[in-house]
């Protein structure tokens, strides 16, 4: 081996040669991290689809909009699809391997390739006509305007007396 990935503390860790094992491992890490951060959060929502790869996402809100940022390095903008319904954002696409990646075996692989789909439930309704998305330096940023009636929506619950 003439190029050794330098590892600071985990020097004894073997190279991850198997992509399947590496993906299982990253899923386990992610599950474990999620559990440590929010022990029962995973039970409440399937925010992240496990199994296939899916990009890391930030979701932030201001008074007027939601902002979603997703890390999607190495994608062509035409391979990306963003769709919005009133309360859900769906990111899908495919990260393609280059031809040279297909023709020769990997020496070492940590990146994930293939198609992905990620449903992001939005906490409130958005105006699906006022959405703009921008892809720059491998980061996708989407601004979604909150719909005006979002804040004042309130449903009365009638209790029937038996």
């Amino acid at each position: 081996m003439n190029l050794i990935p330098w590892k600071h503390k985990s020097a004894s860790e073997p190279l991850r040669t198997s992509t399947a094992l590496a993906s299982l491992r990253s899923d386990m890490d992610r599950l474990f991290d999620a559990f440590v951060r929010e022990p029962f959060g995973a039970l409440e929502s399937s925010f992240r689809d496990f199994g296939a790869w899916s990009p890391a996402v930030d979701l932030a809100e201001t008074d007027t909009e939601y902002t979603v940022r997703a890390e999607l390095p190495g994608l062509a903008p035409e391979d990306l699809e963003v769709s919005v319904t009133e309360n859900q954002l769906v990111l899908s696409g495919e990260k393609k391997e280059t031809t040279e990646q297909n023709e020769k075996g990997y020496y070492h692989s940590e990146s994930r390739y293939g198609s992905f789909r990620r449903n992001i439930p939005l906490p409130g309704a958005v105006d699906s006509t006022k959405v703009d998305a921008e892809y720059r330096n491998g980061v996708l940023t989407i601004h979604l305007a909150k719909s005006p009636q979002n804040a004042s929506k309130r449903i009365e619950v009638k209790v029937k007396k038996s």
């Binding site: 190029l3 990935p5 040279e100 990646q101 020769k104 075996g105 990997y106 020496y107 070492h108 692989s109 940590e110 990146s111």
Partner: peptide, 8 residues
């Protein structure tokens, strides 16, 4: 960063 290394 995650890296891929290819040998040609």
């Amino acid at each position: 960063p995650n890296v891929d290394i290819l040998e040609k």
